[in-house]
Design a protein around this nucleic acid. Sequence first.
RNA 1: GCCGUCGUAGCUCAGCCGGAAGAGCAGCGGUCUUUUAAACCGCAGGGUGAAGGUUCGAUUCCUUCCGACGGCACCA
Length: 506
Amino acid sequence: MAWEPNRLEQQRLDKLDRLIEAGIDPFPTTVERTHTTAEAIAAFAAVEGNDDADPINVTVCGRLVSSRDMGKTVFAHIEDGFGRIQLFVRRADIGEESHLILRKLIDLGDFIQATGSLMRTRTGEISIHVSAWKLLAKAVTPLPQAKEQEIDGEIVRYSAFADIEERYRQRYADLAVNRDVRDVFITRAKLLQSLRRYFDAHGFLEVETPVLQPIYGGAAARPFTTYHNQLKQDLYLRISFELYLKRLLVGGIERVYEIGRDFRNEGVSFKHNPEFTQLEFYAAYWNYEDVMNFVENMIRTTARDVLGTMKFTYGDNTIDIGQPWPRITMRDAIKQFAEIDYMEHTDADSLRAALRAEGIDAPDKAAWGQLVDAVFSSHVEPRLIQPTIVYDYPRDISPLAKRKPGDGFHVERFEYFIAGMEMGNSFTELNDPIDQQARFELMQELYASDADEAHPIDDDYLRAMRYGMPPNGGFGTGIDRLAMLFTNQQSIRDVLLFPHLRDRDM
RNA sequence: GCCGUCGUAGCUCAGCCGGAAGAGCAGCGGUCUUUUAAACCGCAGGGUGAAGGUUCGAUUCCUUCCGACGGCACCA
């Protein structure tokens, strides 16, 4: 769709013409900058009060975010990636023509460069007493308005760019005017840095495995499909990294992790986006208890790194990840919250009847483990606000986990929950190729009725395992959900720069 | 896919039981000692997400469609 300038844009296009007529390049190629806004303020604060100090001259760059035209004097703020600083611009200092151009042809949103000496105004704000300025880039479209003021460290908003849909569709504008949105993504980046440091410190090798896969696996999800033209090959966007990472254990890499994108062709919700960032790791010679300890420590370490605390607010709750995380079996958790002991009903029909007797929804064509999972999801998961580890899952919904010794129903698997959300999934990994093959075949039967849910058997993965796979513990966690937790955002879209939305005309 | 709520100016919103589309901020023109949500005076700006329907008359009621949000379903 072709762009038609609106009234405000047309005004700015006219100003652009007038700037060019005045011999000013509205998009120059060279920029000078001696200080960021933060550096300038710090430099002034460091010598203030010292009467012998020479005036500090600085050149800063940034976007014009406020302007108060007093006639002979203009007060304005520019913002760069590090903060804001006020410009104090007097006609007498910069000359009549330059002053007039600033007042008449420069708009909020324009990028400018300003040179001058640092001072403190009568009202006490550290400012630049401007001796010269230059346009760096003209903004044709006005930014959505976000009037705000910092009072005692709190951002007070007088008007805002708040329309959720427009904020997501025009994230550039959202970021430009909403500082707290930028902060969310800074925190998210710190989270990733901290996790990588943690894995590096524990001897893990970071790897990258294929996103385009001939056979998808490692999770129960519908894939996106694509096609390689020259190879004439159907390909799938990965739904997990699991089977590739475990191949690497066969290859002798003892500790391995990957942080990357998974794709699942499923519904979207406040905690689901079609593409999302996953962290998986595998460690040889560990079992799920080793993983529990490692993960608990990992989350604490990153919280300390990123937030400086292990106690933080999420929605209406205060989450304390510093206390030892309770560990409870799936069976006990369901007993506690749904008052059903599923081990008294060890086949699907009997469990279904028992659940229905308690008034709990139980789908007709669900296998035993799926029924257990269903009651857990509806009755237990939402109640797990503080960090909780739930372990020993039904075997028939965990085809990649090793069975619990002496227990025909459970595998060594755990998930951990915070704020009522599943945050991560782990097991003592199945490394018996004969058992693995049987489990794959069982899963095929389980889902045989539903073509969409059919899972292909990855024969190459089985071949790898037949070469011998060390016993190992594995883990996967959604980075987006961790980011939600650490930034107190209630929707996954708010921790994704460009969340998926339907197409729409601009 | 289903159910519900919502969509009015650049931004944030108001608009009652159908009766001539409003405000603040932003913008434009002015005034103006170091102001800070600057202030003050004046001006302009939309035809109400789209398409239909009912009506003398629709932003208000109805239908369909588009999009967002919430919930459900889906999500080893």
